[in-house]
Amino acid sequence: MSVIRIGGAPALALLIACAPAVVHAHVTLESREAPAGSYHKVVLRVPHGCKGSPTLKVRVRVPDGVTGVKAQPKPGWELATVKGKLAKPVDDGHGGQITEGVNEVTWSGRLLDEHYDEFVMRVKLPDAPDAVLHWPVVQECEVGVHRWIEIPAPGKSADDYPEPAPALRLKARN
């Protein structure tokens, strides 16, 4: 049993301090920024299930312009990808064009609500400085589903939405 024991009063204080954070925790990316046009490790953080129910599936939609998607297998999780035509062909940097690629990545397994896990893929980001890429995630649980797919309207921020899509801002390359 890997239970960490803390004294009563400090534990309660900690619980009170953390409670709002736990309630509002979203599925997010570990790094919110990355250089445009770079190879980047996307780390998706899943902090909880659906109202206590364990997570059975994490599905990620790859944003337009992102290529070279290689998802990292996880022990205990089945990895699947959906390949298809890209919405817009992308320059491959060698004079040709990439027209097909991975549109969707799915990890299927089991993650208890009280546990935390990360889901990783390596991608090539588009060379579009200042663009914001949204990574819509569908978190399917034993009971219920979270759709982290809300994209802020102009003038709004992700904080204005209950289930915002994880976002990655592209920086100018140094």
């Binding site: 599905r59 939609r61 969707e104 819509p136 569908v138 759709r147 797919i149 809300e150 309207a153």
Partner: peptide
Amino acid sequence: LLVSDFEKAVFS
């Protein structure tokens, strides 16, 4: 409106 699994159309 949930247009697809990953996409919501929003009208205000």
